[in-house]
Nucleic acid binder design. Structure first.
Lengths: 155, 155
DNA sequence: AATATATATTTGTATGTACAATTGTTGTAT
DNA sequence: ATACAACAATTGTACATACAAATATATATT
């Protein structure tokens, strides 16, 4: 089902026969792993015609449990920056997955809520995405995952 | 000098008070770390008016040691895909950092070499980038870095 | 009240990325 | 020799991202 390689050798992947210093190697390695994850996530979302950032916005909105979220709130909870959020929401609007209105208490703010259509879409995706996440870390024991998280915390 | 946080707590960063399952947490964690690295790399390259992918292309070309590289070769060695490489090289051309010519043996292919200006630029950046890489993994012991690389190999 | 400042969002521009379609060239089969 | 497939690169379109500038509203200052 999934595209997978048994040995993610950094030197092989970037096709060099030089030995890469450990520091540099680690940074490249992280980028490669991240790439692989993104590719598989993108592929999994593709049938739903949704991008990773759009998916993240929807999940943030679902987490609000009916309460509208301001653009700035969405932005805070996203990994990336504001400049996109307006346009991301535009695209979700165009698909009817979210609604937008001006906040009456503070007319500078914009309130965004996920629509039923958006919730239904997320629900359709839940199982598939869960499986993908399981698969992505499928070769790790819980102990190893904890070790990995502990190491990542050092960044 | 560098922007740095002592504790990269995933839940704090994405502002949730829910406990995230280990699998999902790991994947988010990787994205956050990668983001942080990219931000700092981008900032370090900014004074040189060069993007990360452009920098990678230049380094690949320097690795050729005078020998021209075909577009497809560059592409193979990059983390990302072909569609960009043509346009990346266009921009490097515009800055006079690389030269491009059609391969005489096989006129479908394009040969790219780094110019002296490109080599000089890379040399100017070398120290700074080395320091940045050191800094990024500065809180790791070599043993930890090896452990991290070993774990990343499982992806 | 008028002005300045801060906040929230939007818009413009440049860059990078994914995917599909297209162009030009080479190699192969008949 | 012609036709067809394979290959290498380019181009078009849509999306995402970084950064700066602009717009609109609210708050603070005088």
């Amino acid at each position: 089902m999934y595209n997978c390689c048994m040995n993610m050798n950094v030197e092989t992947i970037i096709k060099t026969n030089k030995k890469i210093p450990l520091h540099k190697r680690t940074i490249i390695h992280l980028a490669l792993v991240n790439n692989k994850i993104n590719e598989q996530m993108t592929a999994a979302l593709k049938p739903f015609d949704i991008s990773i950032p759009q998916f993240n916005v929807l999940r943030i909105l679902r987490g609000q449990q009916g309460k509208p979220a301001h653009l700035s709130t969405i932005n805070e909870r996203m990994v990336t920056k504001m400049s996109n959020t307006t346009r991301l929401v535009d695209k979700l609007m165009a698909k009817g997955l979210v609604k937008r209105s001006i906040c009456k208490q503070n007319r500078r703010k914009v309130e965004i809520v996920i629509t039923q259509k958006g919730l239904d879409l997320l629900e359709d995706m839940d199982d598939l995405l869960f499986e993908l996440e399981e698969h992505l870390v499928g070769r790790f024991t819980d102990k190893e995952l904890i070790a990995l998280n502990t190491l990542l915390d050092k960044f």
